[in-house]
């Protein structure tokens, strides 16, 4: 590797927006309580400037935990449902599953979240449930679309070379479907981060908490802090998935 090429690699790495947005997100997470006291000029006099119910690293950790846990469950369930809908045994139900997915997509996230409260009470539990319910759909959609995109000749070739059904699924179909499945997971996680933010209206501790507390207590400083961090968080995660997806596409 020549110095010139190494430099080009470094430039390419530094040119990645995910690095910059992610760095900004991390720096702001840990310095928000020191920056906020200096923002008084933005807001009406007398506004309490520093959000004190929880520290921002705590909020980020809790937000990430909720989203991560729910996404994990959503990916497992969505993968299972999507594989089922494309197997001979489940193909009969594919149309019904797809219709239910379309119907469920029309349910507003706030409504799903609010409906979970009477059943599960306030706090993290209804948020995780709503996140899972909402996250399964895009994953399943991606899995079904991905598995269906595998060309029939490839499947025939796999049959001809003596693959078992499970071997064919695991070693041929899923790897070929991976980019589309990944796109579904990306959508699911992005929606999850947004829904988790709304989760603070039912008492979950997330980056939405300063926003909700700020809106209900008319404190624009809290709103701004929560908003900036949660927007950076969502964009960082989305860009990171974009990098992951780019790995599947050969560079030109």
């Amino acid at each position: 590797m020549t110095p010139g090429r190494r430099q080009a690699g470094l430039v390419r790495l530094l040119g990645r927006p995910v690095l910059w947005v992610g760095a900004l997100f991390l720096v702001l997470t840990f310095t928000m309580d020191r920056i906020a006291p200096h923002l008084g000029f933005l807001f009406p006099p007398g506004t309490r400037l520093v959000y004190s119910r929880a520290s921002f690293p705590e909020l980020v950790a809790s937000h990430a935990m909720l989203t991560g846990l729910a996404s994990l469950v959503a990916i497992v369930v969505g993968l299972a449902a999507g594989v089922f809908a494309t197997r001979p045994a489940g193909r009969d139900y594919a149309a019904t599953l797809e219709m239910l997915t379309a119907v469920a997509q029309t349910f507003p996230p706030v409504a799903v979240l609010a409906l979970a409260v009477p059943a599960m009470g306030y706090g993290a539990a209804p948020t995780v449930l709503a996140l899972v319910l909402y996250g399964v759909l895009p994953v399943m959609g991606g899995v079904v679309a991905g598995l269906r995109s595998v060309p029939a000749p490839v499947l025939d070739a796999a049959d001809g070379t003596g693959f078992s059904a499970a071997g064919k699924l695991w070693r041929i179909e899923l790897p070929l479907a991976a980019p589309i499945i990944l796109a579904g997971v990306r959508t699911s996680v992005t929606i999850g981060i947004g829904t988790a933010t709304i989760g603070s209206t039912v008492g979950a501790l997330t980056l939405g908490s300063p926003i909700i507390d700020g809106l209900s207590g008319s404190n624009p400083s809290y709103v701004l802090q929560g908003t900036v961090l949660v927007a950076l968080f969502a964009v960082t995660v989305d860009l990171a998935f974009g990098e992951l997806e780019a790995l599947y596409h050969p560079r030109r």
Binding site: L42, P109, G194, T197, I198, I212, P220, L224, V230, A231
Partner: peptide
């Protein structure tokens, strides 16, 4: 814009 959580987008416009 789509990636930004909806609640944040609503709140972001207040300022």
């Amino acid at each position: 814009v789509q990636t930004i959580p909806s609640i944040a987008l609503f709140a972001l416009l207040i300022g």
